[in-house]
């Protein structure tokens, strides 16, 4: 899923201080699961902002709503009839949701309430970690199911680099060396000999380098 984390409230206040009528808009998908932008976080943020502005002697109208998804036309339409009731929307969706709303409601300022961090998994209570960078041409079949693109700080395709120490990355003891994980997994699979196959120079045109990416499926089109 897409992992996000809450922006510091001071940053949100700075962006909305000049608006009077504000909608805090949550999303019921990834950001709910990673506890950054679901219904609960919308309530908490709205309450905190109300209190802040009342204390400043500048009470504002701050409403709450959480959509099923913000990356979907159908659900975003649910706020159309009330859109003119607001001077700005604080969206707690990922960057995709914020932009989709901005494209739909051209004259309403959209303020992101979270930082979109990565594609990752909920590894433990309160811990979300990256697993994919959507490079567009998956190499996992060759690397024991562990991704060197997203999990090696140097994206080394023929690793590990010389900085791997005791299974950890040169960045520090909190970061696993992706190549140690790959080698451990190849060994578990009985495929350690595959380590010596040289990974060819990668086609990065399917990654960020190729410009904004699209998937077109004629079989799915109406």
């Amino acid at each position: 899923m897409i992992i996000a984390e809450k922006k510091p409230i001071e940053e949100i206040i700075e962006e909305i201080k000049d608006f009077q009528r504000i909608l805090i808009l949550g999303c019921n998908e990834c950001v709910t699961v990673c506890e950054a932008g679901g219904k609960k976080e919308v309530e908490i943020l709205a309450s905190a902002l109300r209190m802040y502005f009342i204390n400043k002697g500048n009470e504002k109208k701050i409403d709450e709503k959480t959509l099923e998804r913000q990356c979907d036309h159908e659900y975003l339409e649910e706020i159309r009839e009330n859109i003119d009731d607001y001077d700005a929307i604080v969206s707690l969706a990922c960057g995709v949701g914020v932009q989709f709303a901005a494209e739909k409601y051209l004259t309403t300022p959209l303020v992101p309430g979270v930082n979109t961090v990565c594609l990752g998994a909920n590894e433990d209570r309160g811990l979300w970690t990256e697993r994919c960078q959507a490079c567009g041409s998956c190499v996992l079949a060759k690397t024991g199911g562990i991704c060197p693109v997203s999990r090696c700080a140097k994206r080394v395709l023929n690793g590990p680099c010389g900085g791997s120490t005791n299974g950890k990355c040169e960045l520090g003891k909190d970061v696993d060396c992706a190549w140690q994980l790959i080698i451990d997994r190849l060994r578990a699979l009985g495929k350690l000999d595959d380590y010596e196959k040289v990974a060819p120079i990668k086609d990065w045109s399917t990654d960020r380098a190729g410009g904004p990416r699209t998937v077109t499926r004629e079989d799915v089109k109406i």
Partner: peptide
């Protein structure tokens, strides 16, 4: 491949790693 940029004076910079060291040899 080079030390990670976080060790240096431009810790906020991008890194490239379009190729890795073996691919540069190639």
């Amino acid at each position: 491949s080079g030390d990670h940029q976080s060790f240096g004076d431009c810790a906020q910079g991008q890194n490239v790693h379009d190729l890795d060291s073996m691919q540069l040899v190639q």
